[in-house]
Structure formats: C-alpha cells, structure tokens
Design a protein around this nucleic acid. Structure first.
Lengths: 197, 197
DNA sequence: CTGTCTGTAGACCGAGCTGTCTGTAAGATC
DNA sequence: GATCTTACAGACAGCTCGGTCTACAGACAG
C-alpha cells in the first residue's frame, strides 16, 4: 500500500499557504472561507475535503505558526553560541527579526486566542504552544545554572509575550531592543553578575 | 437652550454597561448588535441614536476600558507610597488585582486591536492609550532619577503588556508575581541597588 | 471500457450580521 | 389638548458567513 505518494500535496499546501498569509494578516475570523478558496485557486469541495471544519484549518495554521516561531527561537538561541546564558538572551534576536519583517502583526497565537471563544480548541492549542516554549526556556535556564529556572523562564517568556503583543500595533525596533536589554538584565540578576557565572 | 439636562443617560449607560461586559468577554466582533440590544433591554433605534455605527460603540467601550485600567494603574502606584521608585513597581499590583478578577481575559485593547483592521480607528485609539500610559510611566521614571527614563518606561510597559497578553489564556497569579519581580529587578538595575538611590 | 481518485466550478441553504424602517407609548412643555 | 422628545417593539433589506450539494474533467488501474 503506497501511502502518501499522491500528488495531492499541491492543493493542500496551496490552501495552507494562503490561509497562513491571510489568517495572520487579518485574523482567522476576519477571513472568510470563500476568500481562502479564491486566493488559493482551489475548489470549495477540495478545501472541505482536507479541512472538514474551518476550525481544522485554523488549527493547522497554528501548527505551522508554532513550527516557524519555535524554530526561529531555537535558531536564534543556537546562533548565540554554546553558553546557555547567552542563549537565553540570544533567543530574543528572533523577536528582532520578526519585528523587521514586513507585515509583522505580533503573536499569531495571542491574536487568534483573543478572538476565539475561551475553552475552545484554539485556546488549548495556544496554551500547549506556550507551555512547550516555556519548558524549553526552563531547560535552558536550568543548564545555565539558575537557582530558580521556572521563575526565570516565566519571566523571560512573559517578556517575550510582551514584545510580541506590542507588535499588533507596530513593529518599532525599539521594542525588540528594549526587550533584549530587559532579558539581559533579568538573566544577569538571576545568574549573578556577567562573567562571574 | 438647556443642554444635556435630559434623563437620557439611563438608556445610554445601560447600553455601555452591557457592551463593556459582552465586548470584553467575547471581543467586539464576537458580539452582535442584536445581543447588546437584547441584554440591555433597549430598542434598536435607541442604540443607533446614541451610537450611529457599531464602531462608535466599540470606541466608547475602549474609552471606558482606558479610564478603568489607567485609573487602576495610578491607584496602585499611589498606594505604593511617595517614592517614585516604589510606585514604578507598585503599579504592577493593578495587574495582580486584574488577574484575580473573575472573567479576566487580558488586555481589552490588545484583544480588540488583534481583531480589528490595521490602520483603523480602533488601532489609533489603542496606540493612543499605550502612548499615554507610557508617557505617565516615563514621568515616573524621570522623577525616580532614571538615567534613561524612556528606556525604563519602555521596558516596564512591555513587561506590563506581557502580563496582560498572557491573561488571554489564564489568570494564573504566578504571572502577576513573576511580572512584579521582573519589574523590581529592572527598576533596581536602572536606578542602582535598592536603598542606595 | 469501466471504475476510482483527486481535483475544479459553482449553485444553494440557513443563519447571522449591520443598519433602516414603521408604528406606538409615556412624559414634558406650551 | 396639541406637540415634541425619548424611548420601546420589531419587521425588514442586503449582505456575508460556514457548510453542503451536484456536475464534470483528467489520470491511472484492472
């Protein structure tokens, strides 16, 4: 049984690409299914074949956002070097990069959660995303030798969320800059003076 | 010409009270005008007399939010004492109080802006609100003797936004606690060790 | 040739939305 | 009592939404 050798990826990918772009720009609720269909050049039946409910499409969109953003965070941390302390600060470069990007509108998860009914699948997926990211930061903080890795991770992710949330209004680079400096201050305070680690 | 001696405040206030409650709970886009009418016990014509467009009602809602939240911030700062340094940290008690409140869903401005078209009046009002708050914090930072009041204010409001944005998901008191500790760290770092000011 | 799979094209339905309309009732003022 | 204001009650138009449906076309397998 040759699974997934279908050339069907094409239609599905076109739908997801279009949804990603439109959903992020206007919010899932601000984009009708008809618009996604028109802009992706796909038949309505095809869309509903791959994503039986609009919510399924929204969740797939969030999955893609999660991959992209979490990936950017890890890449930024990796590029900061081998010292976990530097990585904790370096991950904020992902925010700087995001702010610079055209059409930047803040955190897709927060934006989507804000317009979705509480307790729904979108909320759950958002909580899951934030939890995974915070767990990763916690591990980083632990490896950096923080006395209270959970608290430091909480503080840093809170900072990250603040920088992202402000992005709904504008992508002012001063935001990313101030956020990064805050991160440095918090990390130094938690781990001892810089260079003394 | 006896202006505004009308007893009409009753209907208008009922509309605004209801809109405040519903808009904050489900987001303006998630609440139909009919629902506001039904729950406020008002005629449709009356609502459209006071608020010709739904957007007008949304803006009036944001005005009320601004008064409430900015008021809470100033009250929290005031209760922290006369020292501007304490006030900078004390204002975060407003966040703690908000987290504790039932039905807390984060920052109404961010939530509303996330579901509104960029460049619209809602965005403008949100930017205005954030600007006013940051100006107030800047003045506090200046009085506290910060070398760079703008930066410190930016950092603290960013932190505030982070705490508020996370509230869309849950009102975990740990968020407010971590935020407050971050604020203390940032203020101390900017103004010198505590008690040495 | 005949099915099956995957896709396109678009009509259609019921529901909900914003906003307008007509008609009526209560109270104040002249 | 006549009139004006303010409000209530609710039908209505016009649109968009999510989602279902039928009809058809090409590729490939038996």
């Amino acid at each position: 049984m040759p699974e997934r050798r279908t050339p069907a990826g094409s239609a599905r990918d076109r739908i997801l690409d279009t949804a990603f772009r439109l959903f992020y720009a206007h919010g899932p609720r601000g984009v009708g299914v008809d618009t996604v269909i028109a802009e992706s050049g796909v038949a309505k039946a095809t869309l509903y074949k791959h994503f039986p409910r609009k919510d399924d499409l929204v969740l797939a969109y969030l999955d893609r956002v999660d991959q992209a953003w979490f990936g950017a965070l890890r890449a930024a941390a990796r590029e900061a070097g081998d010292d976990p302390r530097d990585q904790l600060v370096g991950m904020f470069d992902a925010l700087t990069g995001a702010c610079r990007r055209d059409g930047y509108h803040g955190c897709a998860f927060i934006n989507t959660a804000a317009e979705s009914p509480a307790g729904g699948p979108v909320h759950a997926r958002t909580v899951e995303h934030k939890t995974v990211v915070r767990a990763w930061v916690t591990e980083l903080a632990r490896r950096a030798g923080a006395a209270n890795p959970e608290l430091l991770a909480r503080q840093l992710t809170l900072l990250l969320d603040g920088g992202l949330a402000s992005g709904v209004l504008d992508g002012d680079p001063a935001i990313a800059e101030a956020t990064r400096q805050s991160a440095r201050t918090l990390v130094d305070a938690a781990l001892g003076a810089p260079g003394v680690g």
